[in-house]
Lab assay of single mutants.
Amino acid sequence: NQESVVAAQLIPINTALTLVMMTTRVVSPTGIPAEDIPRLISMQVNQVVPMGTTLMPDMVKGYA
């Protein structure tokens, strides 16, 4: 089963992602794949992401 990127903390809107903000977990439905974490660093979220929420492609500016 593929791991997806999950918020390790509350991420406010327009925050640039850092490694410490993200963790990985096997979730359903699947979100952004864990191997894309290096690509996500410094990208901004376009909404508030509560802790434990799976990051979906449409939540990250410039990802999709």
Rank of each mutant, 00 (worst) to 15 (best):
N1K: 03
N1V: 15
N1W: 05
N1E: 15
Q2G: 15
Q2T: 14
Q2M: 12
E3P: 06
S4C: 09
S4T: 07
S4W: 03
S4P: 01
V5N: 01
V5G: 01
V6H: 04
V6Q: 09
V6R: 02
V6C: 06
V6F: 02
A7F: 01
A7N: 00
A7E: 00
A7C: 03
A7L: 02
A7K: 00
A8L: 08
A8G: 06
A8R: 15
A8V: 06
Q9F: 03
Q9I: 04
Q9N: 07
Q9K: 09
Q9Y: 04
L10A: 10
L10N: 13
L10E: 09
L10H: 15
L10K: 07
L10G: 11
I11H: 00
I11A: 00
I11D: 00
I11R: 00
I11G: 00
I11V: 10
P12G: 15
P12I: 03
P12T: 10
P12V: 03
P12Y: 04
I13F: 10
I13H: 11
I13M: 09
I13G: 09
I13S: 04
N14G: 07
N14V: 02
N14W: 07
N14I: 03
N14P: 01
N14K: 08
N14E: 09
N14A: 04
N14F: 10
N14S: 12
N14D: 12
T15S: 04
T15A: 08
T15Y: 03
T15V: 04
A16H: 05
A16L: 04
A16G: 08
L17C: 01
L17R: 00
L17M: 07
T18V: 05
T18I: 05
T18H: 04
L19S: 10
L19P: 13
L19M: 06
L19W: 08
L19E: 11
L19F: 11
V20E: 06
V20H: 09
V20N: 09
V20P: 07
V20G: 08
M21F: 15
M21V: 06
M21L: 12
M21D: 15
M21A: 11
M21K: 03
M22E: 01
M22F: 05
M22K: 00
M22Q: 01
M22G: 01
M22R: 00
T23I: 13
T23D: 14
T23P: 01
T23H: 14
T23K: 13
T24Q: 12
T24I: 10
T24Y: 08
T24S: 07
R25Y: 15
R25T: 09
R25P: 02
R25I: 05
R25H: 11
R25V: 14
V26P: 12
V26I: 09
V26K: 03
V26F: 11
V27H: 03
V27S: 11
V27M: 08
V27R: 06
V27P: 00
V27I: 06
S28A: 12
S28C: 15
S28I: 04
S28F: 12
S28H: 05
P29D: 14
P29A: 10
P29K: 04
P29W: 03
P29Y: 04
T30K: 04
T30H: 11
T30W: 10
G31S: 03
G31A: 09
I32D: 01
I32P: 01
I32K: 01
P33N: 06
P33W: 09
P33A: 11
P33G: 13
P33F: 13
P33T: 14
A34W: 07
A34G: 12
A34D: 07
A34H: 11
A34F: 06
E35Y: 06
E35T: 12
E35N: 14
E35F: 08
E35L: 05
E35H: 12
E35W: 04
E35P: 10
E35V: 14
D36P: 00
D36K: 12
D36H: 13
D36Y: 12
D36R: 12
D36F: 09
I37E: 03
P38C: 04
P38G: 13
P38K: 06
R39P: 03
R39S: 13
R39A: 07
R39Y: 11
R39L: 11
R39C: 12
L40Y: 02
L40W: 01
L40E: 00
L40H: 00
I41K: 06
I41T: 10
I41R: 05
I41W: 13
I41Q: 08
I41M: 05
S42A: 14
M43Y: 12
M43W: 04
M43L: 13
M43K: 10
Q44A: 09
Q44V: 10
Q44C: 11
Q44R: 09
V45H: 00
V45I: 04
V45S: 10
V45Q: 00
V45P: 03
N46E: 08
N46I: 09
N46L: 12
N46A: 09
N46Q: 15
N46H: 11
Q47P: 02
V48K: 09
V48R: 08
V48S: 15
V48M: 08
V48Q: 14
V48E: 14
V49Q: 01
V49L: 08
V49F: 02
V49T: 04
P50N: 14
P50Y: 06
P50S: 11
M51Y: 07
M51T: 04
M51I: 10
M51R: 09
M51A: 07
M51L: 10
M51S: 06
M51E: 11
G52P: 01
G52S: 11
G52V: 02
G52A: 06
T53E: 11
T53H: 07
T53N: 11
T53Q: 08
T53C: 09
T53V: 09
T53D: 11
T53K: 12
T54K: 03
T54I: 11
T54S: 07
T54Y: 02
T54C: 09
T54H: 02
L55V: 08
L55R: 01
L55M: 13
M56H: 06
M56V: 13
M56I: 14
M56L: 10
P57E: 12
P57Q: 10
P57Y: 05
P57A: 15
P57T: 09
P57L: 03
D58L: 12
D58T: 15
D58M: 14
D58F: 09
D58K: 11
D58I: 10
D58P: 11
M59Q: 06
M59I: 11
M59E: 01
M59A: 14
V60R: 01
V60H: 01
V60K: 01
V60P: 00
V60W: 02
K61V: 09
K61E: 05
K61R: 07
K61P: 04
K61W: 08
G62I: 07
G62E: 08
G62F: 09
G62W: 06
G62H: 11
Y63K: 04
Y63V: 04
Y63D: 06
Y63P: 06
Y63G: 04
A64T: 15
A64N: 10
A64P: 11
A64H: 14
A64Q: 13
A64E: 11
